[in-house]
Computed example of a mutant assay.
Amino acid sequence: MANLQLGRELSARTLMFHAAIAEKVRLSATEHKALDLLSRAGALTAGQLAELTGLTTGAITGLVDRLEKIGFVRRERDPSDRRKVMIYPNLEKMEREIAPLFASMSQQMQTLLSRYSEQELAVIQSFVSQSIAVLQEETKNLQSPSSSHSPTS
């Protein structure tokens, strides 16, 4: 049980850290993390971003409108399929405005990781990868119309 409590604490601290980063650049936490997903993908359609985030396409439209207005993304028609609109992250702006906010954290995490053996790091990587898979699956379950998870159940 203590391990589950530790996981909850890590989750809460991670969420609060990213909320603080988002606030520094005048984004919501959701906008910040959607932008992170987009930056790792390179370019996505609104539908693809909705699927990755679990947000509705309507919510994604508003989110992308806000990110585009402040210069973090741009929309362009897909040259191979003019019906598709691709959303591209402004990596230069992200590097200039967001990346420096992670410098101290990155340095501290590198120091922390250096304390572990390759074997220990492999176990940690396995745990984190499997945790991500569980979170993705549980998020999908919560978003499905037939979800049995509800505040009253």
Rank of each mutant, 00 (worst) to 15 (best):
M1P: 13
Q5E: 14
Q5D: 13
R8H: 05
S11T: 12
R13K: 11
T14C: 09
L15S: 14
H18T: 08
H18C: 07
A19K: 10
A20I: 04
A20G: 11
A20V: 06
E23W: 00
E23D: 15
K24Y: 01
K24F: 00
K24P: 02
R26P: 00
L27D: 03
S28E: 12
S28N: 08
A29L: 10
E31F: 02
H32L: 14
K33Q: 11
A34S: 15
L35E: 01
D36R: 06
S39F: 00
R40A: 14
R40C: 12
A41G: 12
G42M: 07
T45N: 08
T45Y: 06
A46L: 10
G47K: 12
L49M: 12
L52G: 05
G54T: 08
G54M: 03
T57D: 01
G58V: 07
T61P: 00
T61D: 03
G62D: 05
L63A: 09
V64T: 11
D65H: 12
R66A: 13
R66V: 07
L67D: 04
I70K: 10
I70G: 02
G71F: 04
G71V: 07
F72M: 03
F72L: 05
V73Y: 01
R74G: 07
R75N: 03
E76L: 15
P79C: 13
P79N: 11
P79Q: 14
S80A: 13
R83Y: 03
R83D: 03
V85A: 05
I87F: 03
N90W: 01
L91A: 07
K93G: 02
M94H: 03
E97S: 08
E97Q: 11
P100Y: 01
A103V: 05
S104Y: 05
M105R: 15
M105N: 05
Q110N: 15
Q110R: 15
Q110M: 15
S114K: 13
S114I: 07
S117N: 08
S117M: 10
E118Y: 01
Q119N: 11
A122H: 08
Q125H: 09
Q125D: 09
S126Q: 14
F127R: 01
V128R: 03
S129A: 15
S131G: 11
V134T: 10
Q136H: 10
Q136F: 07
Q136E: 11
T139V: 09
Q143L: 15
Q143W: 04
Q143C: 10
Q143R: 15
S146D: 15
S146G: 12
S147M: 02
S148C: 04
S148L: 10
